[in-house]
């Protein structure tokens, strides 16, 4: 490939997801009408995309390093439950209360501000466990995280005592709500009215992008995903890099769990079932390769937005939910096919 074509390919690589997003939005705008780009609807889409996008930021780190995490949906549920436990009221400690009730009482006794740190910490711990099992047992990430998917879902139900955990914490739920008091839709500054979680996502994405592009750890992640044997030969501590990737991913899933609790206003252990596939799809639609070594955080966020907009558009058109599901499935296959076509002839 000559340098000029390579430069073009690089621009297309970077801009591809954005171009796809613009095409999807343009097509929807024509079919749906002006409602699609009303501020209220844009805010809806952003709020709907934010959990998947937050997870996709973490998943990008893992996929770039040549891994995959199928357990993230279950981890989000587990972290949502733990977050709700901290914010909820302590259970009655009767004389026959078991150690679990005492643990829940201890959690509920923690100050409210620790709810999010607890969720993030839980995510990091599961990530560390995933990474250690993958590198320590030399197992495929697919297998280990498939097992973890079941284990974490079970743990979520166990920690929730097979119920939803209720809490009353406006500070948390306001993260996913539009700021009050409501402001006029037409105002030029209406764009600041998006839910705080969207702004936080923006900050998280910038941070993660810096990590991936401007730090030595970032280079190591790309190097391990691109050619693990070469990375090892050149003295990169491959297991450490992989474990770190899963821990960073876990932190993002923990935060996504807290957002899930904020949106539902309860800790629901059965939430986010199948969300791991949406998250992985967002990363792939955003230009990453499942083989590792390529992909950007910005692309993954755009990928999440694209899928949220597809969902939103078909909702506005009054299509049945199954149509949306088929559309999303088609979008994933199309994105990967496009990626293959773009990459043909590369080593």
């Amino acid at each position: 490939m000559n340098p000029a074509r390579e430069r073009l390919a690089r621009i297309l690589d970077a801009a591809g997801p954005i171009i796809a997003l613009l095409v999807v939005v343009a097509v929807l705008r024509v079919t749906v009408g002006p409602d699609l780009l009303g501020w209220r609807n844009i805010q809806n889409v952003l709020t709907q995309a934010v959990i998947v996008a937050t997870g996709a930021v973490g998943m990008t780190v893992i996929i770039v390093a040549g891994g995959i995490d199928l357990s993230c949906g279950a981890v989000i549920a587990l972290c949502a439950v733990l977050c709700a436990r901290v914010l909820g009221t302590p259970p009655e400690l009767g004389p026959d209360a078991g150690p679990m009730a005492a643990w829940w009482a201890w959690l509920a006794g923690l100050p409210d501000w620790t709810a999010i740190p607890v969720a993030v910490l839980a995510g990091v711990l599961v990530g560390l466990l995933n990474g250690s099992l993958i590198t320590g047992l030399r197992q495929l990430p697919f297998i280990v995280t498939l097992g973890m998917m079941g284990a974490a879902r079970g743990a979520a139900k166990w920690q929730a005592d097979e119920r939803t955990v209720t809490f009353d914490a406006p500070a948390l739920t306001s993260l996913m709500a539009r700021p009050r008091p409501p402001m006029a839709d037409a105002a030029w500054w209406a764009w600041v009215q998006v839910a705080p979680a969207v702004w936080i996502l923006l900050g998280l994405a910038v941070l993660a992008s810096l990590l991936m592009q401007a730090t030595v750890l970032g280079r190591q992640l790309y190097a391990v995903g691109s050619n693990e044997a070469a990375a090892r030969l050149c003295g990169i501590r491959v297991p450490w890099v992989k474990i770190t990737a899963y821990a960073i991913g876990g932190a993002c899933f923990g935060w996504a769990g807290a957002l899930s609790a904020a949106r539902l206003a309860v800790g629901d252990p059965t939430t986010a079932v199948g969300l791991e596939l949406d998250i992985i799809a967002a990363v792939i639609v955003g230009g990453a390769s499942l083989g590792g070594g390529t992909g950007t955080v910005a692309g993954a966020v755009v990928g999440a937005l694209l899928m949220a907009w597809l969902r939103n558009g078909s909702l506005l058109l009054g299509w049945a939910p199954y149509t949306q599901e088929m559309l999303i499935g088609g979008a994933i296959v199309a994105a990967v096919a496009l990626d293959r076509w773009r990459r043909r002839g590369r080593a």
């Binding site: 280079r219 790309y222 190097a223 995903g225 691109s226 050619n227 044997a229 070469a230 990375a231 030969l233 050149c234 070594g293 390529t294 590369r346 080593a347």
Partner: peptide, 11 residues
């Protein structure tokens, strides 16, 4: 050869 194909020449 031990080359990471996705990284740049300098990397």
């Amino acid at each position: 050869l031990a080359i990471a194909p996705d990284l740049s020449v300098a990397d």
